[in-house]
Design a protein around this nucleic acid. Structure first.
Lengths: 211, 211
DNA sequence: TTAAAACTTGGAGTCATTGCAATTTTTCAG
DNA sequence: CTGAAAAATTGCAATGACTCCAAGTTTTAA
């Protein structure tokens, strides 16, 4: 059997708890909601909540956890003759141009950001996620370029490319928080991406070209 | 009176508590030491500890808090004809070449790093500090270049320059953690700074030239 | 059908952090 | 020098995240 009843139920329960928690957080703020309340509202015990989520922050950032592979994926999937940075810029532009919710370009993102902004614990968790994103990217860059173990370049490049992504996402978050229209923010961020590209060196833009 | 008995005593108490705490943390790790123990060891009540330090993390990072002005200071003090990034690179090279404890180049830094490494709460706090460093730098860049309010460039430049500094400091931390010799790490980081400079664009290296 | 494996739960305990009211210290005007 | 007023210290109680543990319950699989 590919999928037992148990697995299905677990995924469902986990999703439900996260949804209930997210709703409460958006409504009243991260600190104002206790784990006990969440457990109550989700009809489970506090222990069950902790059974699924290692910490309170994870109840809110469960979805975001999926993006730790994003940069690694984008770079792995770069086209012939395209560098790592170029691939990331292209994918970012595609997402931004498409006003994609995957990069935060949807009306409800403001509520999401507000919760994060006022909760240091959530911001920390996002930093940790960004670190993972970069670590994964570095790993991919090492594989793709066959760099020596002690070569610092993949690490530096991952830093630069991670900065590109992080900066774009941060600006989107900042603007959406101001209740700007997604379409408007999209246009603005496309301009920002141009600015960013202009201030990167050829070295960075030409690193890890495929083919 | 420029300095009453009260003020002197307070500063002394604060310093003592922080010293005692740091000692315990280095000896047994951040999580393994409770605030109550620290208070005991410092002959004060737990409330007094919280009177001086907003959170447990601040007991350890009290000293590091002084460096939030570092980049802003370095850039403000740049020479005629020198850009912001060049000033930061120069100051970093000076500190590193001098094997300065201000950048972590001293034997005991490994113990310090070990405590930080295994305590997520401390790492978060350092990220927050780095954010402040960058925010201050951005402010200085805005002042010095007279950039328009809605100009994103100072923010991007602060990001790049902050990245330079952060990367150097991170590498120093990583290497010192491995119990490498400060002198050896110094040499290595000087090479790293050359690598970093080589991968920055002219745009970045020529931003905010004085004069 | 049923024993083992996997989940859930209640309860007790640790620890950071906060709020409050009572005490002690230090400062300072008279 | 002396008696408040101001500032600092402390004990006590409470909240809330998180962990451990020892029962139950439910699901699986033979």
């Amino acid at each position: 059997m590919a999928e037992g009843l148990r697995e299905r139920k677990k995924r469902q329960t986990r999703q439900y708890i996260s949804d209930v928690a997210t709703g409460l957080f958006v409504e009243r703020g991260f600190d104002a909601v206790t784990v006990a309340e969440i457990a109550d509202a989700a009809n489970v015990s506090v222990n069950t909540v902790y059974n699924y989520f290692p910490a309170k922050e994870d109840l809110f950032l469960d979805r975001s956890a999926g993006m730790v592979e994003r940069l690694a994926r984008w770079v792995r999937g770069r086209a012939e003759g395209e560098s790592a940075a170029q691939a990331v810029l292209r994918e970012l532009r595609d997402e931004v141009r498409a006003v994609s919710p995957r990069v935060g370009l949807f009306a409800g993102y403001a509520d999401f950001m507000r919760v994060i902004q006022e909760a240091p614990a959530l911001r920390s968790r996002l930093w940790a996620l960004a670190q993972e994103v970069e670590a994964n990217l570095e790993q991919v860059l090492r594989e793709e370029t066959g760099a020596a173990e002690d070569d610092e370049l993949p690490s530096l490049m991952a830093g630069q490319i991670g900065w590109i992504h992080g900066t774009a996402i941060r600006v989107i978050g900042r603007e959406m928080l101001e209740r700007r229209e997604p379409g408007e923010v999209s246009r603005e961020v496309l301009a920002l991406l141009d600015d960013i590209e202009e201030l990167l060196s050829e070295r960075v833009l030409a690193y890890a070209v495929r083919g």
